[in-house]
Design a protein around this nucleic acid. Sequence first.
DNA 1: ATGAAAGCGCTAACAG
DNA 2: CTGTTAGCGCTTTCAT
Lengths: 328, 328
Amino acid sequence: MTLQDIAKQFNTSISTVSRSLNAPYHVKNSLRYKIKEYALEMGFMPNLVATNLRKKQTNIIGVIVPFISNNFYESFLACLDEICQKENYYMMVLQSLNDINKEWLNITMFKRLNVSALFICLANNSHNYSKMSALFASQFPVIYFDKVPNTNQVFKIESSDRIATELALNQLFKKRPRYIVGIFGNDNTSIVRNRLVSFYDFIKTKSLQGKGIQVNCEEDCKRQLQQLFFFNKDTPNAIFCMSDELLIWTMKFIQRSQLKYPKEVDIISLSNGIIPNYFFPEIEYVLTSGNEMASLCYAFFKDIKNDLVNKNGEARSIKPKYFKKNLR
Amino acid sequence: MTLQDIAKQFNTSISTVSRSLNAPYHVKNSLRYKIKEYALEMGFMPNLVATNLRKKQTNIIGVIVPFISNNFYESFLACLDEICQKENYYMMVLQSLNDINKEWLNITMFKRLNVSALFICLANNSHNYSKMSALFASQFPVIYFDKVPNTNQVFKIESSDRIATELALNQLFKKRPRYIVGIFGNDNTSIVRNRLVSFYDFIKTKSLQGKGIQVNCEEDCKRQLQQLFFFNKDTPNAIFCMSDELLIWTMKFIQRSQLKYPKEVDIISLSNGIIPNYFFPEIEYVLTSGNEMASLCYAFFKDIKNDLVNKNGEARSIKPKYFKKNLR
DNA sequence: ATGAAAGCGCTAACAG
DNA sequence: CTGTTAGCGCTTTCAT
């Protein structure tokens, strides 16, 4: 069923039908009502592909993340999805699997689909952003979030790694820890680097005993923690985990070693709030939720869109706030 | 940059350019090479929207799931994504949030986008499938998976709830349990019903003592388990969880109550294999992975697609196999 | 208030 | 092997 079909039904033209459905004020009321009713009754659904081709706009917001199945991105996507629905956009998600070739493939896909905007969290070591910025540039906004390029020439929303890390460490600090272990991923992303540096800065400022370890798998994590907890003179009594995944590995170690927390060892994590509640007692954490970042991305997008129209588009960066949870 | 632009560059027609790029055998080699090279160099990307309008085909496989952030769907999506990439399809995911209105919105969206196929796991209590089947019907295949309509008139891939449940219970049975608790969701889905019935059938057949409880939240789960474990004459010594979420709640109870497993209570779960490894010792489980279902969906789709061409399309249903993991 | 017509970028049937 | 042409379904300008 197309506009054509409806037009025939009323012995009128395609334009009139189109106008009845979209720009009501230009069609005689009586006719308009009849057309709308008929369209509704027949379940007419305008072909998006045709509309998009004509309008050169899709109302699709393309999102690229390394993995869909990650607590942080999940919360980001859930929130963005909700916003999009309210605002009459469609969210389309593709994952890069941290593969920069796949990332590029996804980018071109979105370009060819004429998406209205691209929100992207870069794959590790991605250098695609230079090509990409050129590609979309003046046509559609590209907003980088979470893992962002190291340049000021783009729109980006970074995670405030330093603030979140300090918030968590301060929480541990209140309970006068003797020796803090920081557990970090061992990939070379800005996130890991920032959190690691903030960790050591904090340790230094507070004149604490502390050690940051970088682990690449559960086994590695276990090995390093065993070393620290059972083969050292000084036993740590506080742990900071920079992510959910690391928290899981750490908790496996804790349970295996039958260490009591928070009594023998105090634990805090950066998290989007799901995993820490899988354990009893619940783990303290600083909420680094994707929700806020999604809201910021969308707000940023609307802002830029207007700017693009006014030709004032200019690189800017925003940082979200963080909150502590499950505190004792 | 469009075909037009390239055509001008070589003083030739749009068709020749199009053919050079898509149907090489119809263009003189020398010209073809030059055109392809030029297109590559200039980073030409054919407009998908135009192609789709013309071909009435999008190469997008639309997927609707209740939630993206669910271990089972994650594995399904990850696997399907991989397949799609290999086969030159794009996977587009929308979530219904178990809201049948949002589900319907998503369905119409996919319809209007002319997707090549729709894979859908129904929202709880959805009755949209009757309208939907009519909508897509002969045009595109609709494949229902996991939560499927209770009719034989559609293409569907069900989970083999009975087989998976029996596999898990048999594993418990080997260790001669005195009293098995089965923990089930309390939504009225076919999955819950099937697993619950299988549970009781098994208990009966083996003449075991057993009780199935249905819980709707962590608190409820705790309350009911406390009752069974601490306020009853007979204490259960084996637990069967029908899903990951229930396993998490159960483990919270176990840890809180300081029950030892597998010594004091043996635990097994149906799972897609992530959550059971969050605990130490790891929990035994029967793998109900989304991966296999994704493969089956895609294979089914290709099959139906050919059938549709041959006008032999006929409702069929397939069931996947399951495997046990983490066994002791 | 309405219709005719152009055209978004592409493919494919047809003619040569 | 190549160009011309029609048209996918829709929006929008320009007449009337």
